[in-house]
Write a protein that binds this DNA or RNA. Structure first.
Lengths: 326, 326
DNA sequence: TCAAAAGTGTTATCCTTACACCCATGT
DNA sequence: ACATGGGTGTAAGGATAACACTTTTGA
């Protein structure tokens, strides 16, 4: 290792930095993702924009700036996800200047029923891009009907060679889509598997389509560039983070019922939760407190309203919404 | 949000991408970090190098390439940490071209006693940069003697204004350095707090030093640029990851005793662990299996040798080394 | 025989999971 | 009165945390 100045100006290729955001909210028990409309090929994209180091001191400032300019959302929680430097990944789709680095972000916002005049048409259900990720009702039929048969053929072509993590195709399929317990935060792994197997539209675009892609039909709605991969990263991170940080409240209105909170947790995690256990946990983890008010919206007994106790942040390592096994 | 082509070529400033790696190994129950030697000011730096998008298709390939060139380590596990775009962060230290984006990586490697002729002098104990992070023996005296008094004065200057997470200075100090239980993975938060309070050398360099910095004296060895922040990120990530992924074995030799494994876990996490509970967990989590051999190195009864069972990766969501409360 | 480290057995406690039942309102 | 969701009590099982004691070697 060279001792000094290994950052010296080598003949390095300058690149452009692009910020891409997965902006998530929940409406009517459905997780929504802000999309920047469809392109000529009919594909949705995540909002994204160039980072101008002259105008903004940090990525996050740059991100907040152009989101404020372009959309009527006020970002709450913002977290950097991953930086993609792949040249290959957009070979087909975008052969102008290949030297673009994308920094992906997860951002949470609210879509409260009553407040400002948000243009909700820009938000789309995230499960329309990832239908196999919604396990709130049964295991989606498409998994048994389409995904598993196609993946079975794919792994039959090379069942035993372990990949770099020591897993064979057969094992990966079983763990991610088969009878193993549903690991909700492995969203990216599942998408990656479908991509490698050539079963999603993005693989076709990159010239990696499987011959099976025709007979299986589209698996979820594709997105432009690698935005579906970024969304998968965001979903997995949010599902994981929710368990140990109280981020879910960034997507809740000021006051909410415990059932609404549970439904939101279920919507995000894609799993059904156990009512009593969820309540017990929420109540004695002290992340919420009753407002004293009650809501009597839907048929049934009025529900007590709660609010997030911001001071939990001050108490110890900071709790999340332990989601247990449902 | 603009519907189409919001990635259109705006007048964007191209930047350079720099890869910086925290390469970790364990020797003699001490976590070690590969450093690129000291500069003229006597400060160590993490190995780092420019990313050349023409030569390498992905960041990780670029990283592995120049690490292979420059150092005699074979990287095992590699994980992207965070991408820093701050212009401010190197204002003082480096006012050449400020438009540099740094992608930080964590990498694990082995430093086995017997094998190749590694130049170990390049590895430094990570606790010499973060002495307050080693809680294996008592709470380090410097915390009560130097850190807490200085932080007390700092928070006395503004005890009650909550920051963006709703925490006051007083509360942050108590949670991160005070009587709250030690949250070993919050390495970055603790460093960030010391930086904000102007108590580390890096803050002085950035013109943010506290008047107290003189009387307190150096808190850990500083690093060049913001490398100590990257190392803090790496330490926190590794401490967290260890709990749910079997990454620790990337730093172990082929065969090891359970005590050696425990000492390594303790070295990384900075906490003392409970022997029986650790053993019980390791044995019935089935991440290791006996080799049948025994080691009779140091004084005492010979210890059974174990090896990592690579097939655990194939069984379910993948276990780590549950570290409990010690 | 003694130091030093390896290796076990057992219990109290808490958390997780899961059962089934009662309560308050609108129609 | 009854449907609809809100809201609870309590017990079984398992994991965790903590206790101290036995075993096997080298010096």
């Amino acid at each position: 290792m060279d001792q000094q100045e290994n950052r010296a100006r080598a003949p390095t290729m300058p690149v452009e930095v692009n910020l891409t955001a997965a902006i998530v909210a929940v409406a009517d028990d459905e997780p929504m993702i802000l999309v920047a409309g469809a392109d000529s090929a009919g594909q949705a994209a995540l909002p994204s924009g160039p980072f101008d180091p002259l105008a903004h001191r940090t990525f996050e400032m740059g991100l907040r700036a152009w989101v404020n300019e372009q959309a009527d959302v006020r970002l709450g929680y913002v977290e950097q996800l991953y930086t993609f430097g792949d040249r290959g990944r957009q070979a087909q789709a975008d052969d102008r200047d290949p030297h673009v680095v994308s920094v992906g972000y997860l951002a949470l916002t609210q879509l409260g029923g009553d407040e400002s005049g948000l243009d909700i048409t820009q938000f789309r259900r995230w499960y329309s891009f990832f239908p196999w990720e919604d396990r709130r009702a049964k295991k989606p039929a498409m998994i048994e009907a389409k995904i598993l048969p196609a993946l079975a053929k794919w792994s039959a072509r090379d069942p035993d060679t372990p990949n770099s993590y020591g897993l064979t195709r057969t094992e990966r399929v079983r763990i991610l889509f088969g009878d193993a317990p549903f690991a909700e935060e492995s969203v990216l792994d599942r998408f990656q598997l479908l991509y490698e197997a050539g079963l999603v539209e993005e693989a076709r675009r990159d010239g990696r389509a499987s011959p099976l892609i025709g007979e299986v039909g589209p698996l979820g709605e594709p997105m432009r560039h690698d935005h579906r991969r970024i969304l998968a990263t965001a979903m997995g991170r949010l599902r994981a983070k929710m368990k140990y940080r109280p981020v879910i409240f960034e997507m809740m209105p000021q006051a909410f019922t415990l059932t609404a909170l549970q439904h939101t947790a279920e919507a995000i995690s894609g799993r059904r939760l156990h009512k009593q256990n969820f309540r017990r946990f929420v109540e004695n983890s002290a992340v919420v407190e009753p407002t004293g008010e009650f809501s009597n919206r839907t048929g049934g007994r009025p529900a007590a309203l709660f609010r997030f106790r911001r001071d939990v942040l001050q108490e110890r390592p900071a709790p999340g919404l332990r989601v247990g096994r449902g």
